[in-house]
Design a protein around this nucleic acid. Structure first.
Length: 170
DNA sequence: ACTAGTTAGAGCGGTCTCTG
DNA sequence: CAGAGACCGCTCTAACTAGT
């Protein structure tokens, strides 16, 4: 599909760290969109950020988790309950094999892709040192709203970084 | 009956194009 | 440039199907 929300971002090509829409994740995993939404209802560990209108934005870690779930279901022949049990017992990180925590904070999501060459000149460097502590007392809804706003900021940052590189290359 | 999807439909939100 | 409208992608919910 032509992802209207991704627009120029998709056309310019996303970094590995970029957020993905459900259609992009569906294509990448070769799984229909409705199945991704169905899995979301079955696995509480799948928690894509949501923007206005409820649109999902999947972090790279979400995609990795979905890939693992897909492999367990389709390749290993496990049932959803089996995968749920596995997730409960071993945790997401053990399944995905990702030593890094989910980038639930701006500081964490900020790092990849453009960090090496561009980040020092970009405006998001002054992220709070320990935002996790700051949000510890917030409600789930408040956290969701913050994550949503965060996703928008990061998408904007990606756009700006890409545009900057285009202009420098020109 | 239970599991794992699949389908359909109404409505929302973003983008694009046209017009003034 | 700004507003209007069309178009398209996406959402949610509920009902349905196929296999075990």
């Amino acid at each position: 599909m032509t992802d209207s929300t991704a627009g120029p971002r998709a056309a310019a090509g996303k970094s590995e760290a970029a957020f993905r829409t459900i259609s992009e994740v569906a294509e990448e995993l070769d799984v229909p969109q409705h199945v991704l939404r169905f899995w979301e209802t079955k696995f509480t560990q799948i928690r894509p950020m949501k923007r206005g209108g409820g649109r999902r934005y999947y972090r790279p870690e979400d995609v990795a988790l979905l890939q693992r779930i897909r492999a367990l279901l389709y390749d290993d022949g496990l049932t959803i309950k089996g995968v749920q049990k596995l997730l409960r017992e071993k945790g997401v990180k053990a399944l995905v094999g990702d030593p890094q925590p989910l980038p639930a904070t701006l500081a964490e999501v900020e790092a990849p892709a453009v960090a090496d060459d561009r980040a020092p000149t970009l405006p998001f460097d002054a992220a709070p040192a320990a935002p996790d502590a700051a949000v510890a007392g917030l409600s789930a809804r408040q956290r969701q709203e913050i994550e949503t706003a965060l996703a928008e900021l990061i998408a904007l940052r990606d756009d700006l970084a890409a545009e900057l590189r285009r202009q420098e290359a020109a």
